[in-house]
Design a protein around this nucleic acid. Structure first.
Lengths: 207, 207
DNA sequence: GCGTCGATGTTAGAGTTGCTTACATATGTT
DNA sequence: AACATATGTAAGCAACTCTAACATCGACGC
């Protein structure tokens, strides 16, 4: 059980919103996003089952908050992985992909929320912005690699292709499809190889 | 509403199991797999809410049935796409990927069921077998392309990489992440290009 | 200090859902 | 015709989402 959640000691909780997000995060990870219930999160936070509705319009809004929290953390981890490599290098692009896949495996429940819940996300401008910002981290490295700007068609195509690959890899891993097909694969190696293939040859330095 | 479901006209329904699968399929597509309820499917089929439990152990088993139906249809579509191209050609591999992506876009709800529901699928040997068979269609083409057997490491890596790409592309498309990033992309073109990159150079004919 | 107000909690409850149990009805076999 | 089996219904429990009415606390003007 996730007993990292400190309960309240007075009538007013002090920081219920954040506590609920944490509790939800833990529950979503334990039992999957589907079987999660607001009631259970309330119990974990030590409040009545009606209390969350003071902070979130409905169940979905609470889940969106968890997704946003996850997206922000993943974006930070991606940014954190960059300094270890030369800017705009194949290694740094690969590292970004590795962070993506690692995050998915470390927090599959939250990861699913981050990319499912499409209708709910549409309603949240914040989530949209956060998603764009996260993708932007990758896109900028691709720009540097190709010596082009963000609006360039090749940058767009390459960035999306790389995203496609790590996204698919993440889902196949957390949905255990690798086991299904009985594969013995070196995932980091595959990630690195495919990143190289999709990036293509690095062009000569800018004109 | 999906009123393609003919109700019963006598006490016994005749073919309730199949009718429920069809109704569920429609509902899952209309409202997404999350908001689907057995009660609603029952109403659509014109039976009491307890009737489904004569045919399915629980809600999940009904959803698994829908997923299996979808997987079988996608596999058939993949097989159907092969005769149009030379066996083991880049075109035929691309065509398989295109079927995958098309299916996801045509039936996003069912597609999600086919690859989510991981725990539920583990319990179903039939679903496992169906999944393997579907993947096998791709793998066989890769074998022919590379002139190697299914057990070869390169075949495994290449097959998985291709799966990864179309899987990620499918989810990004149905979750509308393409819109989020404001991309104007030629998806079939991208699919074809990336298939080529991931397949790599075709080796010389068998020794 | 003190009263008021808004924010945030509680309790009670309406409506939905998943699933079970006991009973009813149709079908096929002998 | 009689019975066993398959498949439907009705009724109900526990859990869940969300709302409404009420309770409590902290902050602020005075």
């Amino acid at each position: 059980m996730a007993e990292t959640v400190q309960r309240k000691d007075s009538y007013h909780h002090g920081d219920l919103r954040q506590q609920l997000v944490m509790a939800t995060r833990a529950l979503v990870e334990e039992k999957g996003p589907d079987t999660f219930s607001v009631s259970e999160a309330s119990r974990a936070a030590g409040v009545s089952s009606a209390a969350p509705y003071r902070h979130f319009k409905d169940k979905r809004e609470l889940l969106v908050a968890v997704a946003m929290d996850g997206m922000a953390r993943m974006r930070d981890q991606m940014k954190g992985a960059l300094p270890a490599h030369p800017p705009g290098s194949r290694e740094s692009v690969t590292a970004l992909g590795q962070v993506y896949v690692d995050f998915a495996q470390a927090e599959p429940g939250v990861f699913r929320l981050m990319f499912g819940l499409t209708e709910a996300h549409d309603e949240s401008d914040e989530m949209l912005e956060l998603g764009r910002a996260t993708y932007g981290v990758l896109l900028e490295e691709v720009c540097k690699y190709l010596h082009k700007t963000e609006l360039d068609a090749q940058v767009q195509a390459t960035g999306f292709s790389l995203w496609t690959m790590v996204h698919g890899m993440s889902f196949l891993l957390i949905d255990q499809k690798v086991d299904v097909v009985k594969l013995t694969l070196d995932i980091p190696q595959l990630l690195s190889d495919n990143t190289a293939r999709l990036l293509g040859q690095r062009p000569a330095a800018a004109p």
